[in-house]
Design a protein around this nucleic acid. Structure first.
Lengths: 199, 199
DNA sequence: CCAACAATGTAGGCGATGTCAACAATGATG
DNA sequence: CATCATTGTTGACATCGCCTACATTGTTGG
């Protein structure tokens, strides 16, 4: 029953899975639709039925990436207990872990600019980043972060972890130092209001 | 004297210049060696004499990018007077300005990971980032930044501005908000020790 | 039950690309 | 001025993304 004569059944999912693996090993630019088709066992034009062009597949890949990133962030946050600092640190580390494990995927997720962002991708991105927002709101409620638009400090937080990922992935610092870097950055975040806090 | 019959004279420089412009307008992946050759007015295989393959050209491009980035950072820092906070803010803004103006070039500079970092590129990167290090050392000397390895807080600084650039370039926030984002982040950096400072 | 139709996969072709090898012209060196 | 390394040129090959025409399958209404 191998190689169902014609219809593959779930070509789209198979392509996405293979594409994700391929991107992880070879980077985005080496991703070839034809090779993907070969690996999955269909003809070279079959992917076209599910992804009108290469960019469409990349967008879909970015979407699943954001979904998974969001899930990992939330899990890390939930598993870290209730104390804000611990949750923040765990979430930030989860972000950097994802970013270094799937560097090419992350690059792809933030690639918008030369390829218009694609509504679906942007929605998935907002979903993933909502975890950071919740975290900021908790921090503000506890007085550990200064009040104000949660979006603004949330963006700084996102930028920080994203930047750490970029620096690590770019080879500027060794990956083994990423946790220390995260710790330094998070310390910067949380130490601000500690002096002015009541308790 | 237009179109010197055979020898172009400085094909390498011409290719790099044209490549930089092309990357700025179309992104890295749309960069074509053949089109580059066409635009410069040489045959399609001529670039091969100066860049053995496409990646070699990209590496050279990343190298000039880091050199220019370093120059812009230093200029911004020097023009901002002597006060630390002002210099830090100006330098951070210069970084983000470069990063948003030449988004594709920056992406290329931090692309190492799937293409081994290339010693020349890494050296150029360290040169550019030395500006940030100097800044951190000044901040520490003035007591505005907490003491410690300048490299560590320098990396956090780099990660922050790099992350802001990524967030802006990724379309997560509008470019018009980048300065506000930088201001927020820098405030976070400098406000820490202000409470414990003597004067 | 089967005819019509949508969905999905195949076969082949087109223009473009990166890379390579063989050749040609130029500049430098003896 | 002969020799030789440097630098461009020409032509080729495999591959790629994308397109069109066609084949097969699954579905659905008469």
């Amino acid at each position: 029953m191998a190689t169902r004569a014609y219809h593959h059944g779930n070509l789209r999912a198979a392509l996405l899975e293979q594409a994700e693996q391929s991107v992880r090993m070879q980077g985005v630019d080496r991703l070839s639709l034809r090779e993907l088709a070969r690996q999955v066992g269909v003809s070279h034009a079959a992917p076209r039925r599910h992804f009108p062009d290469r960019q469409a597949l990349l967008n879909a890949l970015a979407e699943v990436g954001f979904t998974r990133l969001g899930a990992e962030l939330r899990q890390a946050m939930d598993q870290a207990g209730e104390q804000f600092e611990a949750r923040l640190l765990a979430t930030a580390n989860a972000y950097v872990r994802f970013a270094t494990r799937d560097a090419a995927l992350l690059e792809l997720m933030f690639a918008g600019k030369y390829n218009e962002p694609s509504a679906a991708v942007q929605e998935a991105a907002l979903g993933a980043l909502s975890v950071l927002l919740e975290l900021v709101e908790q921090g503000q409620a506890e007085g550990v972060l200064e009040p104000g638009e949660p979006g603004r400090v949330g963006l700084v937080l996102l930028a920080t972890v994203q930047g750490i990922a970029a620096v690590v992935n770019g080879g500027i610092v060794d990956g083994s130092q990423s946790e220390a870097l995260v710790a330094d950055a998070i310390t910067l975040f949380t130490s601000r209001s500690r002096g002015t806090r009541s308790g």
